[in-house]
Nucleic acid binder design. Structure first.
Lengths: 196, 196
DNA sequence: GTCTATACACCGATAGAC
DNA sequence: GTCTATCGGTGTATAGAC
């Protein structure tokens, strides 16, 4: 892979996190990585094409981190504990979540990587919760799908509060709060009933 | 109050919700309300000044709605029920929450109305929760401040998920989920009927 | 108070030399 | 593959007539 091409992707990845899509211009990307306009339009059809590659690279990164925890054989509650209690820098925002407010993201091609990221989180969290219910380790009155949505929302919303109040810690409070609520639903597995 | 001036504020309010701050240009505001450039810069120092007035007007509106519920004498859980189970149009996003991702919002003057909105929600929710604890109607193991942050985060994050998945209902699922979790912490010092 | 004309910077993209 | 020059369009704001 060409080094300039990779540098363009890396710079776009960084600037998307820092300023979002609409507010990031090709010129800013070029300044950031020291490339020239000619390289940009040689390697990519345009801003949108580069952004999609950069977003997909970021999603791969984030999903790999997520899978380290949710793909492990930790007990279900410990998975959520590890994921939710990771320290986050609230004001920076979520590299994916912050993009959805950009007007251009209503374009479906631009939205695809973001959709992929959140669908992955939601699906694997709700699978974990569903298995916990089957093992009688989780209260059965709440739907795993809705519960997963609530957890992901608490994280994303925590970033919003952090930026709104200019306070890096708000997101961590929100994550702690939703973890406490989740912990309240944990049940000790009871001995398996024997049919007959 | 001059009618043109008011029309400019109303149009900016609308466009801020629709497109955010950075992506809304003075020309778009003028097209939206039919005013001319001269009127704009006669009544307002510039885009930023108009946006601040429009944001403050929106916050007043949202806070009035919020206070209708949280300023009432409903039981604490019913307040959260009414507020959280209001149907929301997820893809439109929260008129305040969507603004925090705009790079320009790191400017403190622009952030002030947003800060005021969220501080109001958080303070009054945590007061309600604190009083519920004193009345022994709410589990005492979780901090009211953290719980309030979790509730507001679930709403805001729900909007993010809605926009990410292009699904109006995600935000309502997230709100339902956090309400269920909250309901699980209710204690019956006195008889309380709660549907849902 | 409102209008039109204008200024200047930056946007995303292209052309063509090397 | 990379560079510089340039394009048409738009953003924010100002000037000055009426």
């Amino acid at each position: 892979m060409n080094a300039t091409r990779q540098a363009l992707i890396d710079s776009m990845k960084e600037l998307l996190w820092l300023r979002g899509y609409d507010a990031t211009s090709p010129n800013q990307v070029l300044d950031h990585c020291g490339a020239g306009k000619g390289s940009f339009y040689h390697h990519f059809k345009g801003k949108k094409a580069l952004a999609i590659e950069a977003m997909n690279a970021r999603v791969d990164e984030l999903i790999a981190d997520f899978d380290l925890i949710f793909g492990s054989d930790l007990p279900w509650l410990n998975k959520f504990q590890q994921y939710l209690l990771q320290p986050r820098t609230g004001i920076k925002g979520c590299p994916m979540g912050r993009l959805v407010s950009d007007p251009s993201i209503s374009d479906n091609e631009l939205r695809t990587p973001i959709d992929r990221y959140f669908k992955h989180l939601l699906m694997h969290m709700s699978m974990t919760l569903s298995q916990a219910q089957q093992a009688e380790q989780l209260d059965e009155n709440t739907s795993p799908v809705i519960l997963a949505e609530t957890v992901v929302s608490a994280i994303q919303g925590g970033f919003i509060i952090s930026r709104a109040l200019h306070d890096d810690q708000s997101v961590n409070s929100a994550c702690l709060g939703v973890f406490s609520l989740l912990k309240g639903l944990a049940r000790q597995a009871e001995p398996m009933a024997v049919a007959g």
